[in-house]
Amino acid sequence: MAENDARKLNRMFNRISSLIATEKDYLTELDGAIGDADHGITMLLGFGAVSSELARSDLDDMPPSAVMTIAASVFLNAVGASTGPLYATAFLHAAKALELRQSLDAAGQVAVLQAIALGIQERGKGQRGDKTMLDTWIPAAEAGGAALERASGPAELWRDVVTAGEGGAMATRSMVAVRGRAARLGERSLGHVDPGAASAVLILKAMTEVFTD
C-alpha cells in the first residue's frame, strides 16, 4: 500500500525531530550567543510532542491538512515561547493551503512552504532582513515558487529551496537583529547566525528527504 499524504507528513515531522535532536546543542549555542540559549531545547520539545501525538493518531483516513492542524496545536501547547505561536500559525496556514488542494504534489509542497513563510510573517510582523527564521523561510518559499514555474523536478526544486534557505540563514550572520530577544543586543548580534534561521534550514532538509525519496 502506498504511503498516504498524512503518513508522509508524519514521516516529515519525525525527520524534523531527529535532525533537531542531532543539532540541539548547536542551536542552543547559537541562541546562547544572542538570545536565551533555549532554542534547541524548545524546538526539540515542540517537534518531539508533534511526533508523539501523530504516533498516537490514526493516520489512515486523515487528510494532510488535519495533520498540519494537529501539529499546529500540539506545537503551540508544548512550547509557548516565540516559536510556538510562529510555527503554530505557520502550520495552520499550511493546513488551509492543503485544505484547498488536498494533495502533496509539487505544487502542494510549494504551497506549504509559502503558507509557512506567510504565517510566520503574519504572526511575528517581521520581514526579510530582520535576522529571524524568516530569512530562511522567505527565500526558500520564493525559490520553491520559481522552481515550480520552471517545472523543475522534485530533486531540483528541493535543492533550490535548501540552497536559498541556507543562503538566507548564512546571511543573518551579517545582520543586526530587529525582532526577538536578539534585537536588544543591537550591533552585538552581528557575526552570529540566527538560531531560528538555522533550525528552519533543518526543517527544509527534513522536508527534502521526505519529498524527494
Partner: peptide
C-alpha cells in the same frame, strides 16, 4: 507559567 525563559502557550 511557561518553560524556562519561554512564554506560556495561550491555553
Amino acid at each position: 507559567v511557561g518553560n524556562i525563559f519561554s512564554s506560556p502557550p495561550p491555553i
